[in-house]
Amino acid sequence: MLKENSLSDTMDVLVERKPVKHVRIQVLADGKVRVVAPEGFDVNSFINQHYEWIKKKRAEIEELAKDVKGKERMLILNGKFYHLVKDKKFEIKEGDDGVVKYYSLKSLKRKLTEMLRKELKETTAFYSRLLGIKYGKVFIRMQKTKWASCSSKANLSFNLAMLALPEKLREYIVVHELIHLIEPTHSKAFWELVGFYYPEYKKAEQDLKKYWVIVERNEIWRVLRNLR
C-alpha cells in the first residue's frame, strides 16, 4: 500500500496498485481515503472528481462517531464502555462506571475469545436448527474489513470485535451468515429470508455501520487486533 500526494495536503489518501479493471474508492473509519487502482492510473484526478462525495462520506462518518469522542481508550463491550484496570484475574464489573479487570492484554484477548465462542456455540446451534441447515467449523478472528463471513465449505468466521456490539446485533450477524449458506448473494430472496427471521434487519445494518466506525477508532480494539 502506498501513500500518494492528493489534491489537498489535508486529504490522506492510501493507494493500492493492483491489476483491477474498475477503480475502487472508499472512505475509511478514520477519514482516510482508500483507492484501489492499476499502475499508471491518475489517482489525483480521480480524487478531484469525487471530492464532494468524499466530503459527504467523511461527514457521515463523523456523525456516526460523535457520541464516542473522548472514549477511544475505553474498552467497548456489549455496546457499553468500560475502564480497563490491571489485576490478577479477569472480571467484568457492571454499573455506571463499568470496569474490566485483566492481567495482560494477551490474557484479555483469550478471555474475550472464550466468551464469544461460548455464545456463538449456542446462537449458531439455535438458528441452524431453526433454519434447518448445517454448518461446518466456527472460527473467531480479528477480521479487518468484516464482522463475519462464510466459506463455500459452510465454515463460519466471526470477528472477535463483535463483542463490542449489543447482544442483539451479534444475533443478527449469526442469522445473516447462516442464511448465506442458503442464499450466497445479497439477492431479494436473501433479504426476504433475513427479514422473516430478523424483521429489524434494516436498522441492524445501520447500527453495524455505526459500531464499525466506533470499533475502528477504539484504541483498545486496535491493540487487540494487532496482538499475535
Rank of each mutant, 00 (worst) to 15 (best):
L108Q: 05
L130P: 04
K86M: 13
L75K: 00
K111E: 10
K101T: 10
E72Y: 02
G95Q: 05
E72F: 07
L105C: 07
L116R: 04
G95F: 00
K137W: 08
F126N: 10
K118C: 08
K121L: 11
G70C: 02
G70T: 09
I76P: 00
V85L: 10
Q143K: 05
L116V: 12
L112I: 08
K93F: 07
T113R: 12
L116K: 04
E94K: 07
G132D: 03
Y127N: 08
K111L: 05
G136V: 01
L112D: 01
M142R: 11
R110L: 08
K121G: 06
M74F: 14
L77T: 03
K146A: 15
V99T: 12
L130W: 05
M74H: 01
Y135M: 02
V99P: 01
F139D: 01
L116H: 04
D87R: 06
K134P: 06
V138C: 03
K146V: 13
G136R: 05
L77N: 00
Y82K: 01
L105W: 02
K93C: 04
F81Q: 02
D87P: 10
I133D: 12
D87V: 07
K118V: 07
K88F: 09
T113H: 15
I133Y: 06
E91N: 06
A125I: 14
N78K: 07
K93W: 06
R73L: 07
T123G: 06
T145V: 15
N78W: 08
D96V: 04
V100A: 03
F139S: 03
G70F: 09
K137Q: 10
G70W: 02
E119R: 01
K134F: 12
K144C: 06
M115A: 14
R129I: 13
R129K: 13
H83G: 09
A125T: 11
K89Q: 08
R117N: 08
D97C: 01
K134Q: 11
K118W: 11
S107F: 13
G70Q: 06
Q143V: 08
K111M: 10
Y82E: 02
K106I: 10
G98W: 00
L120Y: 04
K109T: 09
D96C: 04
L84R: 02
G70E: 04
Y127M: 14
A125H: 14
I76L: 09
Y127G: 14
S128H: 10
G79H: 07
Y82G: 00
E94V: 06
K101N: 12
